[in-house]
Amino acid sequence: MNFVILAITNPILLPALIGAGIALLAGIVILLVFRFFSVEVNPLQKTLEDVLPGVNCGGCGYSGCAAYAAALADGSEPLTTLCTAGGQDTATAVAEVMGVEAGTVVPTVAHVYCQGTTGNTAERYVYTGPRNCAAAASLFSGPNSCTYGCLGFGDCVAVCEFNALYIEDGIAHVNHENCTACGKCVAACPKLLIEMIPKHELATTVTCKNCWPAKAARQACKVACIACGRCVKVCPVNAIVMENNLAVIDQELCIHCGECVKVCPTKAIREGLLKGPGTRPEAV
């Protein structure tokens, strides 16, 4: 009893008791809430997170490695081969953890659909604005004579975390050895020039996105696709279709025979992948 009176009247003990009381109450409430509202984290998820590379590139389509691990762990994602950064090794490891048979990863690689180097295209005006593609593209579609072409300021290079892109002769190129197909460059390009293609040593693409008619396309760029249709005729598996004055090769159907490369009058069709600055397209 004496203690209670002392506690209420004492100017130091009372605040201390009230503070401690509130802290105790808050602690109990937190404890109870955590007990009743606990979310079970699947132990599988933790193991999967350790197996995944942890670079959070988003190449799998999830926001990060943890999100992909969570989807795998709760069974909403059956595919164990989505990690593009880790490739086959990661896919095997993930499959092992999940206890399923390892699938094969079809490796993909980013590809810049433009060959409009400084020698092949001209400048329509002298651009003096900020040195990035997004800003340049918003000013009359950029200074390039081909308004579909690569602007070469390197927005894709800036977002690449794997040092796989580089600018050479005024356009962007992909070093296939470093590319993990995370897809960040695809989103960064204001001209929508970068796409993912299956990684094949003789990957054959119409490396152009120009949809203008033949004459205009030719004037804009020396190596533009002029939609002559020769590749369509020569293709033995009918993998090439003509869309909007532009030949497009279906990468799934292509057998890499190289016939279209031979007949293309403007050399718009390219075979092989690049390795780094100074290299030519070659068989990998």
């Binding site: 605040p15 802290a23 809430v33 955590f34």
Partner: peptide
């Protein structure tokens, strides 16, 4: 005069509790 100390305590706890409830519910 205890308001600052007590409020920090209470707000921190409330946020923790809210997080748990939202996460579950």
């Amino acid at each position: 005069y205890l308001q600052t100390v007590v409020f920090i305590l209470v707000i921190a706890s409330v946020v923790q509790v809210l997080e748990a409830i939202i996460r579950k519910g």
